[in-house]
Design a binder for these strands. Structure first.
Lengths: 251, 251
DNA sequence: CGACCTTTTGAACGTATTCAACCGATGTGG
DNA sequence: CCACATCGGTTGAATACGTTCAAAAGGTCG
């Protein structure tokens, strides 16, 4: 809880990387939710506090007073909400150079809980400061707005996923989205470790953990992926894209 | 298409009405998606163009260049997206004093299509102008951010609905949400005309139109609502809230 | 009035869930 | 370091829920 490590990080500034969201072209299966990008280490015009977060630890809880948004420096996070009837749902997963905590701006309180899925580090971006900076610099203001708007668009992607895809399609979209995001970070598009449990994946995709598990097996049998615990290799990306495409249109 | 009526409307400015989103207290079944509020007719500091939109007519199409956001002056709108595989989904319905078109800010293009569900009128808010105003006035900037953030939170509400509720709960949440929004506008909380078809409701709720129709009948049989075509009377609000509450928790 | 669209309802079906058992991996403490 | 407890994951069988296909009635609009 105590702001742990308090070294300083130079952060050029928020920067909506177009490479991550190739909307113009094919964005099938992009599942849109790509996360918000921050240019973490470029020319340092400002320096912000960093904070270490241990696996399982929360960055903030639903209802906490909103004060800052967070950029993932390293590690992996999930943001989840709980409604009044006790229903829980993961609203998103966030990896390096993505932002979370924006949901707090509206009401002055975070409406979800953000927790680290592994030992991680974040950059704390006090929102008041961000607003002040945006006030002075029109370009920065535009970036800030683009940032918020992208989170809106990400939401639309998730709605699409939850509202109009069947289980197989959802998982395929999920993998393709992860793949794309890893590529943007210079990692392999086809090999990665899932930091979240089947249960958390299911929560995000609106499915039960057993269903997710079965789908993993199904995809494995179809030769689309290989799975060793949390390690996933995508064997046939085109095949995954096919899963998405086939059901939507007439073959 | 031509900007039809071009009278001027005085618009005090964007104004996030807290009455519409009683998050602090009970927000069960609020289904969050409450829509963004604009104080349409208060003290007029600015005047914006209005535009009439006939039933079925589009305000903008997915892919159109983004230039403005829109405030509903009268009437009813839906915003829907289509993904690359042809899947369609309604992302939201908007009524008087609510804003739509925010999804375009991020990419510079609208990612959905907005259409009127009845003859309507909107106020056109050129976004460049909004940004300029926000640049000059910190309070306005804050409101603008709150506005965008509320759309993010609305999205979370819809995700919750689509990801963790069963059909009955979704429809109950939908009715309660509508009811609340009508109340905020001074209309009856329990009597209203649905401007959208069962099909559109289903699309929004991630259900098929037949399912929606059956749920209407079910709710009628349970004595929760009365239905005469598109006219709906909520007979038992507490009952509807119960539908939401029961499944989430242990009774 | 007639054509079309929306809605309702029934019956069969398919998909995801539930309940349950089991296995494997991980982590802790003796 | 091993034993044990726990957690996460897999798989099966029965079930429930929502969908699909189909038919028909009711509304609406030209």
């Amino acid at each position: 809880m105590a702001a742990g490590g308090s070294r300083r990080a130079s952060v050029s500034f928020i920067h909506a990387d177009r490479a991550i969201d190739p909307r113009g072209g094919e964005h099938i299966g992009s599942e849109s939710p790509v996360g918000l990008l921050v240019d973490l280490d470029a020319f340092g015009s400002m320096s912000f506090a960093r904070r270490r977060v241990k696996r399982g630890e929360a960055v903030y809880h639903a209802g906490d007073r909103f004060s800052a948004i967070y950029a993932v420096s390293s590690g992996f996070f999930k943001v989840g909400n709980v409604d009044a009837a006790g229903r829980e749902q993961v609203m998103g997963f966030f990896m390096r150079a993505e932002l979370f905590g924006l949901d707090g701006i509206g009401a002055g309180r975070y409406d979800g809980t953000a927790a680290a899925l592994e030992d991680s580090e974040i950059v704390v971006l006090p929102f008041a400061l961000m607003e002040a900076m945006a006030q002075e610099d029109a370009a920065m203001q535009r970036q800030l707005h683009a940032l918020l708007a992208r989170e809106i668009a990400r939401g639309h992607g998730v709605m699409m996923l939850l509202g109009s895809m069947r289980a197989e399609e959802r998982l395929a979209a999920f993998f393709l989205n992860l793949s794309r995001r890893f590529v943007c970070r210079g990692y392999s598009p086809s090999e990665f470790h899932l930091r979240m449990t089947r249960q958390e994946i299911g929560s995000y995709l609106g499915l039960k953990l057993e269903t997710v598990s079965r789908l993993f097996s199904l995809f494995r049998e179809k030769g689309l992926i290989e799975v060793r615990q949390k390690h996933v290799s995508i064997v046939d990306i085109a095949g995954l894209e096919g899963v998405l495409r086939d059901h939507g249109r007439e073959a």
